[in-house]
Design a protein around this nucleic acid. Structure first.
Lengths: 165, 165, 165, 165
DNA sequence: TATGAATGAGCATTCATTCAT
DNA sequence: TATGAATGAATGCTCATTCAT
């Protein structure tokens, strides 16, 4: 694996396993087995590393891929339960970005999810329902930090909810 | 207003208007018009001030108060849109707490909302549906950071969704 | 002596005894017998400390005070010989300032010297001659870094030069 | 042009256009259109590159060449006004050298100027007057950083000053 | 010759926290 | 209660220098 990738992987591992604001560059370098200098050789700043981390994650994991709504919900809930930290990390980066004046990264991720989900929905208001579904999943992802969600049951409930439309 | 309260108000104002990790005690003291020494006189540590900030916010604002589901959804969405920062702040504190080994604060807030909402729902699975509703609202609160949500429309859609059960 | 002053004195001692770019804040703090934190408590940044160092030096030492031209030249040459570093420090700060967009500090020091000297000169072009005199002294100050100037002899030569006008 | 020369030219351009302590090797390499590795291939260290830069400048530009005193003063003042940075750079290198234990480079430049100038002066104390002249020019060079000197006028004044001896 | 990835000591600066007054 | 001077470990980042290719 290339150095740049190694650094990104190490960064993601750390950013998703503890409060993002507690992650240091030194720590990332150590986790990646490289020097601090190299981190800054590949990424202009910590902020850039974080943004690139988000992009890398999205490309690599394509976490919203699914054939139908049930699968979409199930896969995402499962992923959220297993990786609650990733949602916090995304939010952390989005907020910093926003405070720095840009919403691009957040919108890109949101719209990417929306596009995938919209086509699966045979309802009147696909965009609105898709947004609600994603919000639900992201909300449950947050809850999974302190709640032990039963993925099967919640999937059933959500699919039932959508199905009655 | 008492000093302690002034400090908490100032802290909340700051914590909800910028990335929480960027808020400093000095800044809080200045915003409250007191010395740093006094902040540490009233709160053992910054962490405690943050936890107390969450408790203070919940007691003071009772933001989940409503007569029925529609009002609950509408009020909360409206609040979320106007105060997106507060959700970020809550999550920030919850995560730090969890990393320090406790889920109490997060669970307290979650269960408080659940209790209020459950009674309003005439459905088979009130607890599960209530959790979903809250997740949806929290998710949309996060989205309102970078999306311009139409509260009325989303309220209608959500109430419709629940109603068809 | 007050802390702020102690820091400035220590800073000046260091800045004039070695290449200014090699002076670190840690070193200044240590030399002043205070913590690094305190240095930044009194001075917003290293740049500000340096500027304040220049101002402090000028106020404290009033190194251009003299009754007549001979005394002016002699005192200044002597001072320059004993403190060659101070001229380098001034220049170092002036250049940084200039690069940051301001010439105020440099002009202030120049004009201060000019004012004192002009009145002592009974020549046709007092301002021009005063500038030349100061340039000569500053030039010799630079030379005294690697040359062993004889203050008496140079004073005589310079006074003779001016006197023949 | 040979690589070595290209690097020296690029270095001089940078060292004279901003505070010398802000110039990095990476920057020099980029400006010269070569890799950092090559810079260190031709010069053992940054310090050596700087010293070689001084030597190169002196050989290349022979900035003290002139037929008589008037021309000497005029040419040098003009050069100083147009290239104030070069005097800063020379001083920067001289001081580092001195701090490292050597005055050779500075003395070489000083004595070179002295030799050229001495012969033009029909005065009693040619060496002393030559030193003063050079100090004056170097001092004015420093001033030209923040002062807009009129070369013609200053030349006249200086030549007049020398002439009355 | 020529490259630029890789290193890591060192720097300015921040900030929660303490404590004498 | 109330102040803010004082502390110092920790952080993001820089940059001269090396070295495998």
């Amino acid at each position: 694996m290339e150095m740049r990738e190694r650094i990104l992987e190490a960064a993601l591992r750390l950013y998703t396993s503890k409060p993002p604001q507690n992650v240091t560059t030194k720590e990332i370098a150590k986790a990646a087995g490289v020097s601090i200098g190299l981190v800054f050789h590949y990424f202009k700043s910590k902020d850039e590393l974080e943004r690139e981390g988000v992009s890398y994650f999205i490309e690599k994991h394509a976490f919203l891929e699914a054939k139908n709504v049930r699968e979409f919900v199930e896969k995402n809930l499962k992923f959220a339960k297993e990786n609650p930290g990733i949602f916090r990390f995304l939010q952390y980066v989005f907020e910093k970005e926003k405070y720095a004046g840009s919403k691009d990264l957040a919108l890109k991720v949101y719209e990417d999810g929306l596009k995938r989900l919209k086509n699966m929905l045979q309802v009147e208001n696909p965009e609105k329902i898709a947004t609600l579904l994603m919000a639900m999943i992201d909300g449950l992802a947050m809850y999974s930090f302190f709640l032990d969600l039963d993925v099967e049951e919640f999937t059933d409930t959500i699919v039932g909810l959508i199905g009655c439309l």
